[in-house]
Amino acid sequence: MALIETKDISKIYELGESAVHALDGVSVKIEQGEFVAIMGPSGSGKSTFMNVIGCLDTPTSGRYLLDGIDVGRLNRDDLASIRNEKIGFVFQMFNLLPRTSALENVELPMLYNNTPYSERKRRALASLKILGLEGREHHHPSQLSGGQQQRVAMARALVNNAPLILADEPTGNLDTKTSIEIMELLVRLNQESHITIVLVTHEPDIAAYSGRIIRFLDGRVISDERNEHDEEKIALSG
């Protein structure tokens, strides 16, 4: 069973008289353990696609199965539970809570699934450790560099053991060196923990880290291909 399976999903926004097809019959299947990059110019529908597979939005038509669950039929609170359980988000803007320590930021998803206090703390610390943030647990986002903030966000995405990480331009606000660090961490998580990673980017360099590239244009998938240079690229940068 595929982790992500969309069957002919469409998303239509009504703008007065005209209707905009942000997604127009997209069918995509992503297996557990894949590393997929979604590419396309702005307005191509890649963000809408990410929102739908991230359960932040529901398609107008078509079916979306996440881990076998028909997400299209769920209400707001059920979608929140699915996001909590199955999806870790990594954003371009990091989206950490300001004036809140790294540790508490990482604990955040566990506040919403009744994890007991000690367990929460243990898992948050472990997660930060995986991302190499030992010693920074009590730093606030404003005291951390961009790369460190993004790693806190990744620790937060990992902490509930979600099978899927959705990364929306995760390196968009980082310099090249830090971008490489972040991408290597994502690759490592993908390879070592078999976490499925879906990444939105418009930079071919970043997409090159993935094993599969899906390109969007005008709400449709225009190409979906294996990335042949996968292993080679990692070997080079490593």
Partner: peptide, 16 residues
């Protein structure tokens, strides 16, 4: 608003 968005993204429900 953004904080609320973050909380919702990581699983906060309506009543949370």
């Amino acid at each position: 608003t953004r904080e609320i968005g973050i909380r919702m993204a990581v699983g906060a429900k309506t009543w949370d």
